[in-house]
Design a protein around this nucleic acid. Structure first.
Lengths: 142, 142
DNA sequence: ATAGTTTTTAGAGTTAACTCTAAGTCAAGA
DNA sequence: TCTTGACTTAGAGTTAACTCTAAAAACTAT
């Protein structure tokens, strides 16, 4: 059960170029080659790609993802490092989620603001945009 | 009430270099210069920086942020474009938040997995990592 | 007044993560 | 077999967003 690089590109949405780049960077150390040199991806290589997308999606650099993979290949002596890495990533992710929630509030405010002045003209209640000024004071101090 | 570039750098956590870069890219069109050529930031410039950080934090490129600023400077004829931009950004943000939630589940699984095998050795219940294989099938089909 | 710190500019350099090219090899269908 | 499309490599090129440099000018504290 093997997939060509093109099939994997289609499945994952990554390009074949990107998949080769990931391999070159050491992120896909398990991908086999056929007798004639073609890459043959297995289901477990797809599992790795799922994990890579997850870590990348939470802002981890390819370099740090490679560090994890290197630890993985080093075996059981690195179990603690790997656990700690995921714990750090979880904290980072929680921070990100709470940041996004704050960004969402600002964007909702902007949508309300523009909706209001498009409906009622610029003399509407939001005129002086007090929320953002308050926000500035909260964020940067007075 | 004006701030030097160094004061703003301290307030925002951006470097003075980055602030100059933003200005060069057209993101800070309202920053004044003193008679001798020094930048003088006002509170309203800090408001802009809050908004820029918000949009950047939701993944908008500086180029797109500049587009918004250009629309802003064009005046009321662009109110609808600006509203639509924020609505698009809100959708993007909702998608991001739901993605992060999924990533969080995977990372929680990994933390449980590593915690288990560190505690009980690699013959634990998580041995064959079935969750990620199931996830691969869900994500990429087969 | 002078020493030390900040700011100015134009422009060069860096980094991460792709993205593409060229020239050749491999594989599958008519 | 021929052709067409997918795949191979090494290496060059691109893009976004900084990041830094150098030399000069401007503030600030004694």
């Amino acid at each position: 059960m093997g997939y060509s690089i093109g099939q994997v590109a289609k499945k994952t949405g990554l390009t074949a170029h990107t998949l080769r780049y990931y391999e070159k960077e050491g992120l896909l150390p398990f991908v086999k080659k056929s007798g004639s040199g073609l890459r043959v991806f297995s289901d477990s290589d797809l599992d790795w790609l799922v994990l890579i997308e997850c870590l990348k999606g939470t802002g981890m650099s390819l370099k740090d993802i490679k560090q994890y993979i290197d630890w993985y290949m080093e075996g059981d002596s690195t179990l603690n490092q790997r656990l700690e890495m995921f714990k750090r990533q979880k904290l980072k992710l929680e921070e990100q989620m709470s940041q996004l929630q704050k960004h969402m509030e600002k964007i909702n405010y902007k949508i309300a603001y523009y909706t209001e002045i498009i409906a009622n003209g610029s003399e509407g209640v939001f005129e002086r945009n007090p929320e953002l000024a308050a926000e500035r004071k909260r964020v940067y101090g007075k």
